[in-house]
Structures are given as C-alpha cells and as structure tokens.
Amino acid sequence: MVAMSDPIIELKGSLFPLSVLYCQDFSVAALRQELSNKLAQAPGFFTQAPVVISVENCDQIPDFNAIKQLFTELQLVLVGVCGADAALKKAAHAAGLAALQPPKAGKTAEPVKAAPAAPAAPTVITTENKTIEQNIRSGQQIYVKGADLIIRGTVGAGAEVIADGNIHIYGALRGKAIAGAGGDASKKIYCYNMQPELISIAGNYWLSDNLQGDYWGKPVCIGLQDGQLMLAELF
C-alpha cells in the first residue's frame, strides 16, 4: 500500500542546459554533412547529448522523422524543437517531439551552429596508430583517437600532439604532448629531446617550469606512477 502522502510519481519543473542547433538548411543530407563535421571536431563530446532544433527560420515543414533517425544514427538525442509556429508544432508533435519555447535572448550563449565553422587547426582523427614523417609546426594540432601517435620529426613550440594512446617523438618536443587523453593512466610519452611546453598523461600535467633540470633536452620516457608523473632516461 502506498499512502496518499507518498505518491508514486511526481512532476516537478526543472531547468536543464540543452544544446540548441541553429541551421540554415533543414534537409537531412545537409544536416548529416554539417553535424558529422561538427562532431568530428570533438569526438565523444556530444555523444548522446540532448539537442533541440531551432525552427524559427524554417519556411517549410522539414521531415522530422528523418531528422530524428539521423540524430539517433549520430548518437545524439533529439528532444524537441523550439520557435515553431502552429503548423511546425503539429508536425513536431506528430513525430513525437516536444515543442519548446525559444530560449530567451541573451541566454543563447553558445549555440551549436550547424553553419560551417572553419576548424582552428588541422586535426587528424583515426583509430589506428598514426605515423607522421615530418615536423609538426607551431599552431598545428594532431589528435589520434584510440591509438598511438608516432612522429619522425620535431614538435615545434606552440604545436600540440594528442593521443588516446602513447606518443613517440623521434625528434625534439618543444610543444605540448598529451598522451592517454582518453584517461588511460598506463600510457607514456617517449621523446628524443625533451623541451616541452607541457606534458600530460591522463589529465596529470607538468609545465615547462616543472621540467627544467637534469632531464631537459635529454631522451626521456614519461609515465604515470601512482598518479604521479615520472621521468626516466630513455637509454
């Protein structure tokens, strides 16, 4: 028995942060292209993220069912639409989507825009080990998802090399190296000449300031031991 004062369900109003997608083109093909590009810039970041589509500047009724299907494919959760007029609301409801109020002006701090935004730097994404046979220059950024990064060259000051796996650098490391970016504490950084701006393994990092000393400019292996970064000579 459940007492009257102890209801089985309860409905309470709450506020949640939701990403709102603003787009110019509501065709599935265009959305697939733009969203895939966007997601590729930050893999994993938007996985199963709840998203609302703004349909404010939508002049015809899009195929909400197909869009929903696309979101599922891309591992996003389409919650509803906002800024819909009566006809759009009806179509959204028919597809099982909620019609929400448009966000208040000034609160659309970081809309996830589907409009093409040029990535800041070239990012390499792969699930296999990646070997690069040249120098990584200042301003360049390399990311290897789920695997090791091997560089037969130098990583310049102001460059960033990131891998979920180990990082091997057969030249000087003068920029940033981030290994075990996915959180794996067993990953290591190997470099032939260590003069970095920053090294990090699974979120534990040291800055250049912390690294001045015997190992500076030497061939070094960097690993994590009991949550503490450890340096060792390579030879």
């Binding site: 120098n135 990584i136 220059r137 200042s138 301003g139 360049q140 310049g156 000051a157 102001g158 460059a159």
Partner: peptide, 13 residues
C-alpha cells in the same frame, strides 16, 4: 623563429 615555424606549418597544410 616561432612565427616562421607557424608559417612553415601553413605551407605544408
């Protein structure tokens, strides 16, 4: 030197 390094990156990409 650092700015040159940056430009070298641009040249190759």
């Amino acid at each position: 030197v650092r700015d040159s390094d940056r430009i070298l990156g641009m040249l190759s990409s």
